[in-house]
């Protein structure tokens, strides 16, 4: 059986909120290392990979692998019933047909309990190869979100070019063109505002801004976002969570003619 207790419902609320517009029905794969989720959007252009490590929960108990097939719209409806600070406990039997969610309010004596019917989702699982990326950019997640939103006003695609001078986000469209160039930057007082660019070789790739703007819904989960690029491979956009948990998005590049 599964029993996973989260100190704050807020974490799961924000994770589900960040991915519910990208994927609809997902398997939450529970095992002794934690709760994982991998799903692609309908066009198989973007993939979300979530890992909530068992250390994120206390207590965490999962004595055999359980796949919880859940519709994210249903999960969103139930998570709306939890206050951000509520203690959230997920429970499921082995081979379950429902997942049980309990919300306990910290101060007042209120306990809410919901069951969500599970679905049989036979989702193809993709192998994501370990990659030594040519360029890794760590930057404020809010800044990346602003760049994507700003450039999406001009074009549906953005080229991301990393050289030793820095990283340049550029686009051009019907009304004109625009670009944002960042260089490594250290803010001593506020390290969360740092921009760090690690480059082993120059990289230039083009991506759909619609998807990047969608990924940026996760910005509230982490002050920093990590972009990993190599030529001819999908972009990795990673929001690190506590206890080595993470929310990762992969996006296939646009291929020039």
């Amino acid at each position: 059986m599964l029993e996973a207790r989260l100190e704050q419902a807020n974490l799961l609320k924000k994770v589900v909120d960040a991915i519910k517009d990208l994927v609809q029905d997902c398997n939450f794969d529970c095992n002794d290392s934690g709760i994982a989720l991998q799903a692609m959007d309908n066009s198989h252009v973007a993939l979300v990979s979530m890992m909530l490590k068992s250390e994120s929960f206390s207590p965490f108990r999962c004595d055999r692998n359980i796949a919880l097939g859940i519709n994210l719209t249903s999960l969103t409806k139930v998570l709306r019933c939890a206050a951000n600070e509520d203690i959230l406990t997920l429970k499921a039997e082995d081979a379950p047909d429902v997942v049980n969610l309990v919300f306990e309010s910290a101060e007042s004596d209120r306990l809410s309990e919901y069951d969500i019917k599970l679905m049989d989702i036979d989702q193809e699982h993709l192998g994501i190869p370990e990659t030594e990326y040519a360029a890794t950019i760590s930057m404020p997640s809010a800044e990346f979100q602003k760049i994507c939103r700003d450039l999406m006003a001009l074009s549906e695609s953005v080229s991301i070019e990393c050289t030793k001078e820095g990283v340049k986000f550029a686009c051009s469209g019907d009304i004109g063109s625009g670009s944002v160039t960042l260089r490594s930057h250290t803010n001593v007082e506020k390290p969360q505002l740092n921009v760090e660019i690690d480059l082993s070789e120059p990289v230039a790739l083009t991506f759909s801004l619609k998807y990047l703007v969608n990924f940026c819904k996760a910005s509230g989960l982490s002050e920093q976002v990590r972009l990993c690029l190599s030529n001819e491979v999908p972009l990795l956009v990673e929001y690190a969570l506590s206890n080595n948990s993470y929310l990762r998005f992969y996006l296939a590049p646009k291929i020039g003619d």
Binding site: M40, S43, H44, V45, A46, L47, E124, H125, L126, G127, I128, P129, S157, T206, S208, V233, P234, Y250, A252, P253, K254, I255, G256, D257
Partner: peptide
């Protein structure tokens, strides 16, 4: 113009 790649080009089914 550029056309959108697909993840199956890069990630194999497990």
């Amino acid at each position: 113009s550029t056309n959108q790649g697909n993840l199956h080009t890069f990630f194999s089914k497990q």
